[in-house]
Write a protein that binds this DNA or RNA. Structure first.
Length: 423
DNA sequence: TCTGGGGTCCTAGGACCC
DNA sequence: TCTGGGGTCCTAGGACCC
């Protein structure tokens, strides 16, 4: 294991046999903050926080000088500024982060086709097939880090291990700007002394439940009888956590990541009581969700409304449709109806729309129009026609005869059904 | 001085079917 | 006759991750 003594950031001990550590986890350091600092080099040594400009913002990212004051991702910005009043707060620029992300991921793709992206700033790489060409995992890690820095001026940290979650935990302990290699035979020696809260999948709730029962380290967790653990965290989670604590992780690096739901939500700057404002927001979100569904080539079967009230209690209400949809109108109709049946309610802090149970539309996406404004127009046309003449009107164009207004409208419905693969 | 927005996975109860 | 059990779908909530 490199860095056992915490003295060197890199794996310079050539006696370490790293040939079994073929899974790399690569994590860009303080990613959003680092990207912002590329344009503001004069701030590099000052505490910098990236957060939205709202009274209810939370910290999106913080650089290491800010972290020294206890500033962490996801804490309220107001709290962060109490911890570190002289921090510089910068607004996020997601498009820019995406560009850098693509650049970095392209470097990973040069190393191996087995790249599993995790969010915008992390990835797993299976380099078992790249060793003969590119060297040992530690050498590959060094090469990737050098390329990332040369090409983007961003630093990243790399964990190398025989198992995904060990690689993930190793990169966390290598941060910032470091490498940590955990060969297979060192897996348990690496894991067992660590606090149980650091195990991937153990969050605040589970961590507290375990510590309150005297389970402090991952070693303690491994010693806990499976049935006892399952009584605490449930059957599935118990089996998983127990396996991880024993250094067992069957997950492999997977390139394909099927999307299972698409949603949008927003927290208002002040709580809202006006039902019309909420309905308008639902319409906006339903449209945005529909655009993303179509862009991805999906229809969804279940529509979910999410509300968070002023006291922070959060509810969800869902309905499964008889036919899956990618239409903003249809999604809106459903969430508005759910919302309206909820009746009188408290002040609303957050509202959101999600569509689940996605299916590919089958066949290629409809290419009648290229941009979403035309799509929206088509939706309104279809729904307008349906309201006026009934759904039966939206039959395949072939049944309607030559080119009239009606036929064109019929074609829209037909093309949409074909794009979905159900007609 | 309260608590973002994007997601995934699991649990649990009830309906319903065999 | 008063009672089983498995499987699946649906819904609501919660833990967790980035």
């Amino acid at each position: 294991m490199g860095r056992q003594d915490g003295s060197n950031r890199d794996v310079s001990d050539s006696s370490v046999d790293d040939s079994t550590a073929t899974i790399l986890h690569i994590d860009l350091d303080a990613f959003f903050a680092s990207v912002e600092l590329l344009d503001r080099p004069e701030l590099v040594h000052r505490p910098v926080i990236v957060a939205g400009n709202s009274a209810r913002s939370v910290v999106t990212a913080a650089n290491y000088p800010a972290r020294k004051f206890g500033v962490r991702s996801a804490i309220p910005l107001s709290q962060a500024l109490r911890l570190c009043p002289h921090a510089v707060v910068l607004e996020p620029h997601r498009e820019k982060y995406l560009q850098y992300s693509l650049e970095v991921m392209a470097i990973f793709d040069d190393v191996t086709p087995l790249v599993e992206r995790i969010g915008i700033d992390e990835a797993f790489l299976d380099v078992s097939g790249a060793r003969s060409l590119l060297g040992s995992p530690a050498e590959i890690a060094r090469m990737i880090r050098a390329r990332v820095f040369t090409e983007t001026r961003l630093t990243c940290s790399v964990g190398a291990a025989a198992y995904k979650f060990v690689a993930k935990m190793a990169s966390g302990r290598a941060k910032p700007d470091g490498v940590l290699v955990v060969p297979a035979e060192n897996t348990l020696a690496f894991l067992h002394p660590l606090p149980v809260s650091q195990l991937w999948g153990v969050g605040a709730t589970t961590g507290e439940a375990l510590v309150s029962r005297g389970v402090r380290t991952i070693g303690d967790l491994a010693a806990l009888p499976l049935a006892t653990l399952q009584k605490i965290v449930g059957e599935a989670s118990g089996a998983k956590l127990s396996a991880l604590a024993h250094g067992i992780d069957p997950r492999v690096v997977t390139v394909i990541n099927d999307e299972k739901s698409v949603g949008h939500e927003v927290t208002f700057e002040v709580d809202i009581t006006d039902a019309d404002v909420l309905r308008r927001e639902l319409l906006r979100q339903a449209d945005a969700v529909a655009v993303r569904l179509r862009r991805g080539g999906f229809v969804g079967r279940t529509v979910v409304l999410k509300l968070r009230y002023s006291n922070f209690t959060t509810i969800t209400r869902s309905r499964t449709l008889s036919e899956p949809t990618d239409l903003g109108r249809r999604i809106f109709e459903e969430v508005r109806s759910i919302y309206d049946t909820l009746g009188a309610h408290d002040r609303v802090r957050l509202i959101g729309v999600r569509v689940e149970h996605l299916e590919p539309t089958g066949g290629q996406r409809l290419s009648l129009w290229d941009d979403d404004d035309h799509w929206r127009e088509a939706e309104r046309t279809i729904d307008g026609v349906a309201e006026k003449f009934g759904r039966a009107f939206l039959r395949p164009a072939s049944l309607l005869g030559p080119s009239t207004n009606r036929v064109q409208r019929g074609e829209v419905g037909d093309a949409r059904r074909r794009a979905r693969g159900d007609g």
